[in-house]
Amino acid sequence: MTDQEIISAIRKGKREKAIKELYKEYPKIKANILSSGGDDEIAREIFHDSLILLIEKVNKSDFELTAKLSTFLYGINRFLWKNELRKRRRNPELEWKDTLILSADDVGYNEEKEEQMKVLAKVLNQVTDKCKKIFEMFYFKKESMTDIAQKLGFTSVNSAKTQKYKCMERAIKLAKESNHHTT
């Protein structure tokens, strides 16, 4: 697949194909991470995080490809790995070939936001399955409320919407509560 094909696959929601293609870069990235003190687990974790950041980036309307997609992906991985090393209080020089030196802004990474999202991920564990389904279908799969109401067996679109509202209200409230606890 060409870079453009990967990008349009992601934008059309055909992520599986795109992810498979991008996964071909993994061995090389893993080797880089292993050679600077990482292990399999962290390599995989960082690579998966980088895929998420890449896909989020590609889905933005203002995304413009200024280098090869694989180069960009390496750049994100390098950034994330360096960030991880910093957390471990180590700062070796990373010599990755053919890569970009990217800033947090470039890759769309924000430490504070990541922390908040960790809290929210926990919150999503506390809402019902149904809530999660609604969220996922509506916000991720971009399905219409009419479809959602039908698939999840709501009596009307309005009752599905009401539930979505209740779920959202609850999730945000839970998030506030846990923020309150941790700060």
């Binding site: 989020e56 936001k113 929210l120 991920a121 919150v123 999503l124 959202m168 945000i172």
Partner: peptide, 14 residues
Amino acid sequence: DQQLLIQTVSRQAL
């Protein structure tokens, strides 16, 4: 809040 929650939902699914 809503934006962040939506992003988290999407990330989890992703």
